[in-house]
Design a protein around this nucleic acid. Structure first.
Lengths: 351, 351
DNA sequence: CTGAAAGCGCTAACAG
DNA sequence: CTGTTAGCGCTTTCAG
């Protein structure tokens, strides 16, 4: 096989020769150094264009000790939840002229550890971890090396660990209160994956809202979910099969809420007339469902961009952020999947 | 707060000193060079561990002229379609010990061009583009510089452009035939985004299957979609509002098929008794819907990994692949969303 | 304002 | 088997 070897890349020296200046001058114009004679600059720029010069990032990183790359570790991106966060990250990254190195763990926890401890290190200046699982295993090692990293949607606050999340308790509290104000007395709740910190906060928000309104906590009305749609479906079915089914259900995320909706529709229930449904996250699809889903909005994109900016500050040592854990506010978005249970109750649900 | 400046990274020289060998020896053990005295190796390994040595990729790339990084350009990853492809890429990448630099264009075509022509160059050894839009604008420039790149799910075949796709025509043909064999005579079709080449192939597969079975082509039964669920919903509604609605519909992807299903269920139709539905892609959710969706499986993961391997071959100049355009086979997966229309027809169609 | 020169951390001949 | 020695392409003093 003898295809001509990949053309030798044009370097700063080629440009220097072409423009008839020293190569440090070329470097200066590449880096927008102020004190360069405008004619000289002109010459160099022309030469660069003529030759199609593209800076070698490796070399640059080597001398600067910085790669302008940050690592992003995600579980997988099969959910809009992650996609939205990444979008926020992406925008912040682009603004800052950094690049993004992607690592997906596909639920394999070892992968998370491996990536973090070895790979990301050599290439990335910092690390972003979305919805981390095995943090405990590598957190220490990273902190010890003072390697900058920020966790997204992580609850526990240890010293020197930066994280951004949202007001999960408040969100669930608000959603539950909304349902209660509508007149619902039996409200089902589908939890998230209980290994994730936010799941507990949301459950507590639900319980506390119940208590605050003098409503009893009924274990039959709490179904253990996992953040995926099928569990939502199962939970919906289970609730609706109850002797006294709830008139509303709050799911710990939108995916599961859609599962509940499918279950309800499949059983001939009308939403919201016969069953009110509330989700959590406000992923883009919430507006496309029928009816559009009432949900607790998490500022996903903002979480991503906030975390990114925090990380960039850490990397550039632009002052230590005083608050290591940033909590962004959730917001209840009322659409058409919730309504008062009254009319329907008059018709079918005798008490 | 005055955290000590980021600790100086430990280099190969530190390890050399610690292990009392020359630093090229350290390099040898790092690179698994065979001829190293096992005792020496031992010493070095210990020193590395004691110091927590991590190779500086930048330096390594600089001298090798390769970064072991490949660029991935995607539209956005809000769909399982992309997520599945990326998964395939991801696995192949990991196997080959490469890393993945991610660029999302978010539908902004300029971004695609910018990324491709400037950024990817400095850092990545090659480029993967999923479902490219503005390829024409940069293809030439890349080829000219003999910069390796592979397109995923792209139809047009130009010289020197490598791409991997699947048998779209055949897939649609098979799905349509399946419906016809079941006894359907009026089959609706929802197209994809017609700016994407595969959309036309699928439409043709549908038309040709109709023709091959002596069935007429009825323009009323073709709805223009865009690959997103809401359009599927609208198309489903439109079909069902027809005076003589189809008894089956084939959607150009699963997302839209789910839209059709939602529309049908919402109107009180049963699936598949009153309406058979077939999708395209076989994204993971197809098994979770109710009923599970019959669909045309595209080997998404395989497309990703095949493209990656091709790219890696190109990068490593391990022989020129003789076929620039690889077409992977689709496969009809029959689940529960399709059935013979007969029973339902006997009962008639009042709702 | 601009050249010269010293490395950044590592690999890869080249001698032993 | 192992040490020595050139660079890889670029930034950054240090002198002019």
């Amino acid at each position: 096989m003898n295809r001509p070897r990949t053309k030798r890349k044009v370097t700063i020296k080629d440009v220097a020769r072409e423009a008839d200046v020293s190569y440090s001058t070329v470097s200066r114009v590449v880096n927008n150094y102020k004190y360069v004679n405008s004619e000289t600059r002109e010459k160099v720029v022309e030469a660069m264009e003529r030759l199609g010069y593209i800076a070698n990032q490796q070399a640059r990183s080597l001398v600067k000790g910085r790669s302008q790359v940050i690592g992003l570790l995600i579980h997988s991106f099969e959910t809009s939840y992650v996609a939205e966060i990444v979008r926020g990250i992406d925008d912040a990254i682009a603004d800052a002229q950094y690049d993004l190195l992607l690592y997906t763990t596909h639920r394999r926890a070892e992968r998370e550890t491996t990536y973090v401890s070895n790979i990301a290190h050599g290439l990335a200046d910092g690390l972003l971890v979305v919805l981390p699982r095995g943090v405990e295993t590598y957190m220490d090692s990273l902190s010890k090396q003072s390697y900058p990293f920020v966790l997204i949607d992580y609850q526990a606050t240890s010293d020197g660990v930066y994280a951004v999340g949202s007001t999960n308790w408040q969100g669930a509290y608000d959603a539950t209160t909304h349902l209660i104000k509508l007149g619902h007395r039996r409200i089902g709740f589908i939890t998230g994956d209980m290994f994730v910190g936010s799941s507990e906060d949301r459950l507590n928000g639900y319980r506390d809202a119940l208590a605050a309104n003098g409503l009893p906590y009924d274990p039959d009305l709490v179904y253990q979910g996992d953040f995926f749609k099928p569990k939502g479906f199962d939970g919906g079915r289970a609730f609706l099969d109850l002797e006294k089914p709830p008139t509303a259900v709050l799911a710990s995320n939108d995916e599961m809420a859609f599962g509940v909706m499918e279950a309800a529709l499949g059983l001939g229930y009308r939403v919201p007339e016969d069953l009110s449904i509330v989700g959590f996250d406000d992923i883009p699809q919430t507006v496309d469902s029928h009816p559009p889903l009432t949900t607790v909005r998490q500022p996903l994109q903002e979480m991503g961009s906030t975390a990114t900016k925090l990380l960039l500050d850490l990397i550039e040592e632009a002052g230590e952020p005083e608050v290591p854990y940033i909590k962004l506010p959730t917001e209840l978005i009322v659409r058409q999947s919730t309504a008062s249970p009254d009319d329907s109750m008059l018709l079918n649900h005798s008490r």
